[in-house]
């Protein structure tokens, strides 16, 4: 069979274009199938409804950093200081009204090392306290709204998760989170964040950070269970949330939240 040069080129171009399209389609269909099936895997959870609350008592925190370490070990978070699912901030308010904040290494090593305290020498300090931070698992999460591929979503318990197999790494959610709770995991190039130890709480266990806190500054439980620690604290103490003006409705409540903490 004789093929003219023109037909040959035509066929070649069509074949090349078709090949590229076919290759991509199969890849896309595969990933689509995978991500869909991953989402449909429902974990049998003992928690019903969105009644989980995390309570942080600022008056109790001693800044030991055990929670940060436990979190990194439990959740395989990169150990470098710029990747944190949870961290501890130290607030120092001077008599002149100046507020100084730091969180050396995310607080993982505590706050007692000399190099962390050089800058406070000679300051006239009125008061100082620690503020543990983590994902607020907002009821109205801006991160979920902005995700272009719905890779980050709220579970039936109201916990915000990231589907590692679906995240494209655009980092719009990192920009949208008012609390700095998200980061790009340098190993997988997808976004990571605190899950309240979803793998533990769905088995009836406490989040790792709550488990290891030596002073009970971190509490976790069901607000609808009258016997739970969190429902007791929320009943008896005044609680507040971070950046309430943004309307994100955080599910992490703070006891003893000082003005200027954000």
């Amino acid at each position: 069979m004789l093929i003219s040069r023109r037909d040959f080129i035509k066929g070649g171009v069509a074949g090349a274009v078709g090949g590229v399209v076919l290759y991509n389609t199969s890849h896309l269909m595969r990933t689509l199938a995978e991500t869909r099936s991953a989402q449909s895997l429902k974990v049998a959870s003992p928690i019903k409804g969105r009644s989980l609350r995390f309570v942080v008592d600022i008056n109790k925190c001693i800044g030991c950093g055990k929670c940060v370490k436990a979190c990194k070990l439990e959740n395989d978070v990169p150990l470098e200081p710029e990747f944190n699912r949870t961290w501890v901030e130290r607030y120092t308010i001077t008599r002149s009204g100046e507020t100084l904040v730091d969180s050396p290494n995310g607080g993982i090593d505590g706050f007692t090392a000399d190099y962390m305290n050089e800058k406070y020498k000679g300051l006239d300090i009125r008061k100082s306290f620690f503020v543990p931070k983590l994902c607020n698992q907002c009821e109205k999460p801006p991160c979920v709204s902005v995700c272009p591929v719905a890779a980050t979503y709220a579970t039936e318990e109201g916990v915000i998760l990231v589907d590692r197999n679906a995240c494209i790494g655009c980092r719009y959610c990192v920009q949208a989170c008012p609390y700095g709770a998200r980061f790009l995991d340098p190993r997988y190039k997808v976004v990571d964040k605190c899950t309240w130890c979803y793998h533990r709480i769905t088995k009836g266990l406490l989040p790792a950070c709550v488990e290891v806190c030596p002073v009970g500054a971190r509490m976790f439980g069901d607000i609808e269970d009258p016997n739970s620690k969190v429902s007791q604290v929320i009943r008896e103490r005044a609680v507040a949330v971070l950046k309430p003006e943004l309307g994100t409705e955080p599910m992490v409540y703070y006891v003893g939240l000082e003005k200027g903490v954000r």
């Binding site: 991509n24 890849h27 896309l28 990933t31 689509l32 991500t35 995700c147 272009p148 591929v149 719905a150 679906a166 995240c167 494209i168 790494g169 655009c170 980092r171 790009l184 997988y188 190039k189 997808v190 976004v191």
Partner: peptide
């Protein structure tokens, strides 16, 4: 710029 550029076209397949 995407962390996972090979997933870029998922914007069309599973748009939020």
């Amino acid at each position: 710029h995407l962390g996972r550029p090979e997933r870029a076209l998922e914007m069309f397949l599973r748009p939020n």
